[in-house]
Amino acid sequence: MVRRVLALPSGRIAVAVLAVIALLAVFGPWLAPQDPLATSGNTLGAASGSHWLGTDYLGRDVLSRLLDGSRVSVLGSLEVALTALVVGVIPGILSVYLGRAFEWITLRLTDTLVALPFLLFAVAVVALLGNGITQAMLVTGVLVSPLFYRVSRAATLAVARSPYVEAALISGASLGWVVRRHVWVKVLPPIAVALAQTVGVGFVIVSSLTFLGIGVQPPAPTWGGLLASDLGYLSQRPWAPLTPALLIVVTVWACNLLADAIRDVSGEAGRALLNSRKARANQIDEAGPAPAGGAS
């Protein structure tokens, strides 16, 4: 499936953008040219040779703070997505097979989770358990897990009633075999789509929380926190909020683009799409040596 996604231009762009962001998250702190916490007398400075993106109200280097802050945002959003994946997918698939009671309980639980506003809940959890992005993101992950539960349950239901699964059962296949061999392949693409979407949503949540100053102690840099503090000095540096805002927007956009690309290449429609592209490519190859300008 990875190869199929990369066959699409939009898939390539999305993967490239996300790879850059991921590299920033891993190597950001080392790449930072200066100490992100070091203050200086040069407050609210314009972009210069030593400070590429200028300095903030305490004279700290903005570029260094952005690079250092990327880790919190990326890790936070991944944490949301992976928590939601584990908490949602497993009961989603099992709800089809484990009998009525399990199905009923998990369905009611997801209904309850959907009813809770996750941003408010995350704020409340931070207030209760103390200031930490990890706890807040874990809770958010659980709260957005109904998406995964529903997506995986719907896909599994569609496969579970199909004749080829019955054929496998008639041959003596166990439940585990059926899930591994038939269900998994059909459930994976919609889950991948949901995962890419959720990473984007997680990003927005991390940014929102840090924007509000929740989850991270003040001197530590985050994208949301940078955006918030830059907004306070709009009159002095009107262009400053652009960089963190742009970073957030581009990352979320890349996640959604990736989700679309995965959806486009999966399933019957995806196969047809790729086949038609392949056929067209072959035609062009064959037509390649033909003299240019020939009537077609």
């Binding site: 199909s162 004749p163 019955e166 008639i170 041959s171 003596g172 166990s174 059909k186």
Partner: peptide, 23 residues
């Protein structure tokens, strides 16, 4: 499951397209 694994009884479905896994 034990009986089925011996492969004694098999079944052919009405709709050949839907009875084979498309993947």
């Amino acid at each position: 499951r034990a009986l089925r694994r011996r492969g004694v009884v098999q079944y052919v479905f009405q709709d050949p397209l839907r009875s084979l896994d498309p993947d």
